[in-house]
């Protein structure tokens, strides 16, 4: 073990976080990131407001969106000062939470069993593979017929996309486990259930969390699709109504909000994964020895 890794393993919690933040600020990364964002905003500003290029002239401009976004008295009714804004975010987040939770509790065990049992795999997987490629939008009519109200169809659509991503990745995770591990467990006297609990589940964990990352991403994707079709609140609904009501700056406000909340939720999933797989974090930090 070299010096740097010793130091890293001794620092924990707060000190380590502070250390990471300070090195991050010393690296070129945050400045490049700011430059990237600044570049996009400049292009937007120049194309729409300064040069007014063809096809861009009807688009909401940067200054228009920013003033609307941070106005205590917004012209089109939605800004960081209006309670409706947070209501829409809250409702979208609640739907995501329900759908993601359901997809995880059902998808992870299903994926584990699909990977673990050959018979179960043969029984379920073909069906699964036929349902999986059906685009979420194609499920919209059925979802509306099957579920009453406006809330459950949206949650169902969101759930569906997440569920397929989680299940498939979990199954691949089980299949990726080196046979030596299960053999070693049997050699050491573990029975089937113990092998499942101590080898299959933790062994599949890296893939499960990859699946959950994809799952939370596609959840937002299908949530917005669902909300546009059959929602009454939520960010997808905001964007769709803003379009029909010709309140263009609100569209962009909805989009930016989606981007930020989506980013925060994926980060949360990744952090949960790192927390649960300390072994992997520490192994990767050391590089391959």
């Amino acid at each position: 073990m070299n010096n740097a890794s010793l130091q890293a393993s001794e620092m924990t919690g707060m000190a380590l976080t502070m250390y990471r933040i300070s090195t991050w600020f010393k690296s070129p990364k945050p400045y490049l990131m700011l430059f990237g964002v600044g570049f996009l905003l400049t292009i937007w500003y120049l194309f729409v407001e300064v040069w007014q290029l063809p096809r861009f002239e009807d688009m909401p401009g940067l200054t228009e969106v920013v003033t609307e976004y941070f106005s205590p008295d917004p012209i089109y009714g939605l800004s960081v000062y209006t309670p409706e804004y947070y209501q829409h975010i809250g409702i979208s987040l609640r739907r995501i939470a329900y759908a993601f939770f359901l997809a995880t509790v059902l998808g992870v065990p299903l994926g584990l069993f699909l990977g673990w049992s050959k018979k179960f795999h043969e029984f379920i997987f073909p069906l699964f593979e036929v349902l999986r490629p059906i685009p979420i939008l194609a499920w919209v009519p059925l979802a509306i017929i099957m579920f009453s109200g406006s809330e459950t169809p949206v949650i169902f659509l969101t759930f569906l996309a997440s569920f397929f991503a989680t299940t498939l990745n979990t199954m691949l995770g089980v299949q990726s486990i080196d046979e030596s591990y299960t053999r070693a467990a049997r050699c050491l006297g573990a029975n089937g259930w113990q092998t499942f609990r101590h080898v299959i589940v933790p062994g599949a964990m890296p893939y499960i969390f990859t699946g959950l990352q994809i799952s939370i991403g596609v959840a937002w994707f299908s949530l917005v699709a669902g909300e546009m079709v059959s929602g009454q609140f939520g960010l997808g609904y905001v964007i769709n109504t803003a379009y029909t009501m010709v309140t263009y700056p609100t569209i962009v406000i909805g989009m930016i909000t989606l981007g930020v909340t989506g980013f925060i939720t994926s980060t949360m999933v990744r952090m949960a994964g790192d927390f649960m797989m300390q072994w992997r974090v520490r192994e990767l930090a050391l590089g391959d020895n």
Binding site: A184, A185, C187, H198, G203, W279, R280
Partner: peptide, 16 residues
Amino acid sequence: SDRIVVFQNGALFPWK
């Protein structure tokens, strides 16, 4: 557990 294998590529559980 009366016959235990030590594997070619090692089979320590990396998560433990």
